[in-house]
Design a binder for these strands. Structure first.
Lengths: 149, 149
DNA sequence: TTGATTGCAAAGTGTTTGCAACTAG
DNA sequence: CTAGTTGCAAACACTTTGCAATCAA
């Protein structure tokens, strides 16, 4: 099988590697949590102040189209971007404490969606399912975790 | 039990009824599908061109706080607002054909969330679960419905 | 009466675009 | 070589804010 570095994945998607994309991908790769466009711009600026906002946005868009990056839209907060291990459709568990994101494979959601389809006679085309809360590690530290699904 | 008109619900939430709010709520009420802020501004403008954008946004915010309105954030599209029959937390099935929105009660999602909590050792605080596809009525008309969960 | 609400216009965000210059493949 | 990519700055879309005037309860 082909190499799975981000660079390889970009190349395989028929896109060019440029220093800018390399920098942006690197930041996303190192980030332990989803990054906002603004944060990304700032971080990129530290690598090379020459790189402009437009490039950051265009790169994100490009990487999203390539399936390398997914955008998660936290309602009431900013849009954030994260490098995904797989281009397949999946969902996220986002920890509010540490920002860590766990990927929830589509498989886990599929059976539930099937039930929705059956019960509501609704043909599902796309579903967003993002869960916010406290991850196991952070829950271990906290005395009184919130709980309101 | 108390009356359940939108006016009543606004009043009961300790907010004032104003002609502007009445107009905005009326539009949301008549809309068969979620409305974007822009559309709302336009529609409101037809009722009374005097009503400004700021008022529309402030009213939406107010109604959201009161639990009358919910905002749904379609990834890659605009934010839309819709009047909800209940202030309780719930999710939506949105038909891409006709725009109709069906409310999916939290109850239906709860057991699924419980499983996620168990399997991922994750304390769920809030989950967004919005489903896009084709409703039964539209599916009946269409020869080849899309299907890619 | 009086605090909530409004209109206006101006300021913020966050994101996109046009275009000439540049460069990876 | 040449289509894809970039930087810049300006344009855009959407939402929020300050403030004085107004109005619902």
């Amino acid at each position: 099988m082909a190499s799975n570095t981000v660079r390889e994945r970009i190349l395989r998607s028929g896109r060019r590697i440029t220093p800018q994309r390399d920098a942006i991908a690197g930041i996303l790769e190192r980030a332990e949590q989803p990054v906002s466009a603004q944060e990304l711009c700032d971080a990129v600026g530290e690598v090379d102040p020459q790189i402009g906002r437009a490039t950051v946005f265009r790169t994100l868009q490009s990487l999203m189209e390539a399936g390398l990056v997914q955008r998660i839209t936290i309602p009431g907060a900013e849009t954030r971007y994260l490098l995904c291990s797989t281009a397949e459709h999946h969902h996220h568990l986002v920890c509010r404490e540490c920002g860590a994101v766990e990927e929830l494979p589509e498989r886990g959601v599929a059976s539930f969606l099937a039930r929705v389809e059956r019960e509501h006679r609704f043909l599902v085309d796309h579903a967003t399912f993002d869960v916010y809360g406290t991850c196991a590690r952070c829950a271990g530290r906290e005395p009184e975790p919130a709980a309101r699904p």
